[in-house]
Design a binder for these strands. Structure first.
Lengths: 122, 122
DNA sequence: CAACTATATAGATAAATATCAATATAGCGC
DNA sequence: GCGCTATATTGATATTTATCTATATAGTTG
């Protein structure tokens, strides 16, 4: 009695012997960097957060949350959530002055992403 | 009888009359562009897909799926899924030759993203 | 301290995503 | 057409995410 089902045995009698001429490619993006930059890109990958980055980068100084809110038809907790995502990714930073919190862009990771994309041919 | 519950009526008798000196900021990123570029960024925002972009951009020619697979410990359908996400976002394109499918980078949207990030101060 | 403000957090829920196993599609060689 | 190959699609499931309502935190004013 066969212990291996007949349909799991490969019949290679007619297997073609051609291949796709493999290239040997040396990746330059290691797993750690890929994970780190993918996390920053994920923070950027939402229309509201992109527009927040735009607003922050266009302000002449740090921008108050109460100003940011004006541009979106979203509840205050949702605004707060998006700002937190951006801040935790390192793309922006916050400074509290009394009751108000002011946000501003941190350019470091943005520059890293731009360099990565340049390497992709963009 | 009051129709509005008492705890919803604001007592403004002690409201401070200061504000945070609002800036008027002119956003330059419209909603349509934000949505389009956010979608492309989302496609990029996964470590595996970033590494795929790296591999495709480092190949001397278009890269066969069977070559791409070698770099990841993922099943073939998962590889196929990630390539599809990248292709549907416009970041890469595919060409079939016989049994094999070859992928390559499309630089247009990458360049658009880079320009956006430059505007953010990256 | 009491009333108020600006912002953040918690909790709930609906929608999107990553992955796998199983299956389908379609090209090639005999 | 048959048997094989490379790639794509389907379907299931676990995880993550975006949004809201409700509540908490903490600074300010009087």
């Amino acid at each position: 009695m066969p212990t291996i089902p007949i349909d799991q045995i490969r019949d290679t009698s007619q297997a073609p012997d051609i291949s796709c001429e493999p290239q040997s490619i040396e990746p330059r993006l290691d797993t750690e960097t890929a994970g780190r930059l993918a996390a920053a890109l994920k923070a950027l990958s939402h229309p509201v957060r992109l527009q927040m980055m735009d607003i922050l980068s266009r302000g002449e100084r740090q921008v108050c949350v109460c100003d940011i809110e004006q541009y979106f038809e979203l509840t205050q907790p949702t605004i707060s959530h998006h700002l937190k995502v951006l801040r935790e990714s390192g793309l922006i930073e916050a400074e509290q002055k009394g009751l108000w919190v002011y946000y501003y862009v941190r350019p470091t990771i943005l520059a890293e992403i731009k360099e990565l994309l340049s390497g992709f041919g963009g």
